[in-house]
Design a protein around this nucleic acid. Structure first.
Length: 202
DNA sequence: GCTCCGATCATCT
DNA sequence: GATGATCGGAGCT
């Protein structure tokens, strides 16, 4: 394991995402620290390039963090109840991100269980909304540097064998086989359950 | 295991 | 005013 330099995050998110599989991210919240090992990620490119990206139509107040320094946290509120977490990629001014979709808890298991009463251990961080709750990262922490406290991030020395496929839950042109930018560790229990996307009306 | 469906609201049109 | 990078529960196989 090693701590990456800032420049590591300047690469294309499609290259970056698989390199982050197996990485350990920890967050020290007021009530304690939880660390997770990433097992599923999705890459999102920027303005005009990726119809599935929040940045596709340009900069807005919500997505402004993606246009800033790489290695920071882009957090957004989804479906009226979930917080999803991305790692900003590419040089400042461009806009890209890597969505953290699934992980397993490797430290602070007792705390993670307390945050998700009644949830099985393997489900604590299996899914993007669940992942943010297990870590204890609120929306307001968006924009923070993942390379500085209260965060820490360690990556593997060598990439792991991984699988690739279409992104989950992305509708319209950004879904489907044209953008096979979902990366996961085959067989890992932290990989989110695949949800078949709804077919177009007949 | 699977499918269907409602919750719930910031964001953008 | 509609949509969505989701989740959990109900009910079925």
């Amino acid at each position: 394991m090693l701590t990456p330099e800032r420049a590591f995050f300047e690469q294309d998110p499609v290259r970056l995402a698989p390199l982050l599989l197996g990485a350990v991210l920890s967050f020290a919240a007021p009530d304690g620290e939880v660390a997770i090992r990433l097992s599923e990620l999705e890459a999102y490119r920027g303005v005009g390039e990726d119809p599935g990206s929040h940045a596709f139509r340009g900069r807005t107040p919500r997505n402004a963090v993606m246009f800033g320094e790489p290695g920071r946290l882009y957090a957004y509120f989804s479906y009226g109840m979930h917080v999803c977490l991305n790692i900003v990629a590419r040089p400042a001014g461009t806009s890209s991100g890597v969505l953290m979709r699934g992980a397993t808890v490797v430290r602070g298991l007792e705390l993670a269980r307390r945050r998700r009463p009644g949830v099985a251990d393997r489900d604590l961080a299996r899914g993007p909304g669940r992942l943010s709750r297990a870590l204890g990262v609120p929306l307001e922490v968006g924009g923070s540097d993942l390379l500085a406290p209260p965060f820490s991030l360690e990556i593997l020395d060598a990439p792991l064998h991984h699988a690739t496929g279409p992104r989950t839950g992305v509708s319209g042109d950004g879904g489907g086989a044209a953008y096979p930018w979902r990366f996961w560790l085959p067989g890992d229990e932290g990989v989110s359950p695949y949800r078949r996307h709804r077919l177009a009306a007949e």
